[in-house]
């Protein structure tokens, strides 16, 4: 069993550390700083931390003003409030002018758990991916989160980073090497590819073991940058393995699965199956039962991979 670490915990620690060498970093939160862990930065740098109260639209546009002035704002709240409630502010005030605002949203996906469907955001990647200029990143674990935060500080432009409430099993160690726009092929494989993000990278690795037991050699790719997506890696999966399963803790509409399907359909059609939330809202429950309920477990991925294999064999 791998260690369990929180991506939001890694965010809070990393941001507070980077605040030292980057005086231009300012941080905003909307009364959820204890939950998002942005409060860690606030404790270290109270002058550069702004609690905006429950006013997300104002928070995002205020951050835009800060960026227009020359600061580097990090803005945190839950994924649904950042990407949903303040979507138009992100479009008009941030992306339209290509402003350097980093949105780090926690509580993405159904593993939010007991708070229920109102708080389980399964639409944010779709909402952010459609915006011109926006970079969208979903780290696979706490170690990758740390590197993602370091990388986006060096990157200029609007960025959306999706983190989770629950602790994730660790896929990497401190030696992982994240680069914006570059997928990581975690495991080689010839028969089928699993392209995953976030928590689902771990499920994909377990699915690979299940498939191996049946003599199927599955490739596992962590596509942590969903936009700009690593097109070459998607096409390599299509060409070299002939079929793809995508896996995300997000709606199958508009997220990673859509992004992969767009490329595959246009450039190298092969069978694709999308594991994700099937156009449904979430509900209360413990995270693991919710993953089971919505068909987001390793065995769901493995079954989809077998279907893809059958389809590509028939093709």
């Amino acid at each position: 069993m791998s260690d369990m670490l929180g991506t939001r915990d890694a965010y809070g620690k990393t941001l507070a550390r980077l605040g030292e060498e980057h005086p231009e970093i300012v941080v905003f939160d909307a009364d959820l700083s204890k939950s998002t862990r942005s409060a860690e930065f606030g404790k270290r740098f109270p002058d550069r931390f702004f609690n905006m109260g429950l006013a997300e639209q104002n928070m995002l546009a205020t951050a835009a003003g800060m960026a227009a002035y020359g600061k580097m704002p990090f803005v945190s709240t839950f994924a649904i409030f950042a990407s949903g409630r303040a979507w138009e502010q992100i479009r008009q005030s941030i992306c339209y002018s290509d402003l350097n605002v980093k949105i780090v949203a926690t509580h993405g996906g159904v593993t939010v758990g007991a708070d229920g469907g109102s708080h389980q955001c399964t639409e944010d990647v779709a909402l952010m991916r459609v915006l011109p200029k926006m970079t969208v990143i979903v780290p696979a674990d706490a170690y990758e989160t740390e590197q993602v935060i370091e990388a986006v500080v060096e990157h200029r432009g609007p960025t959306y980073i999706r983190l989770a409430r629950s602790k994730f099993p660790v896929c990497y160690g401190p030696d992982c090497s994240f680069k914006i726009g570059r997928a990581h092929r975690i495991r080689e494989g010839r028969d089928v590819s699993i392209i995953a993000v976030g928590l689902m990278v771990h499920e994909a690795m377990e699915a690979r073991d299940l498939l191996a037991a049946d003599g199927i050699d599955a490739r596992v790719v962590n596509m942590s940058t969903i936009k700009p997506i690593d097109e070459e890696e998607v096409l390599a999966a299509a060409r070299e393995t002939g079929g793809i399963v995508t896996a995300e803790e997000h709606s199958v509409i508009g997220g990673l699965g859509s992004a992969v399907a767009e490329i595959v359909c246009e450039k190298h059609p092969v069978p694709v199956k999308r594991i994700g939330v099937q156009d449904l809202f979430g509900m209360s429950g413990d995270p693991d039962s919710l993953l089971e309920f919505y068909g987001l477990k390793a065995r769901d991925i493995a079954e989809a991979a077998k279907v893809v294999l059958d389809e590509s064999a028939r093709a």
Partner: peptide
Amino acid sequence: FSSGSIGQGLSAACGMALAARL
């Protein structure tokens, strides 16, 4: 600052004013 969607400008101005004070 870019504008056009009514209601967002004062927020951006707040951001600039906060930054200047900082």
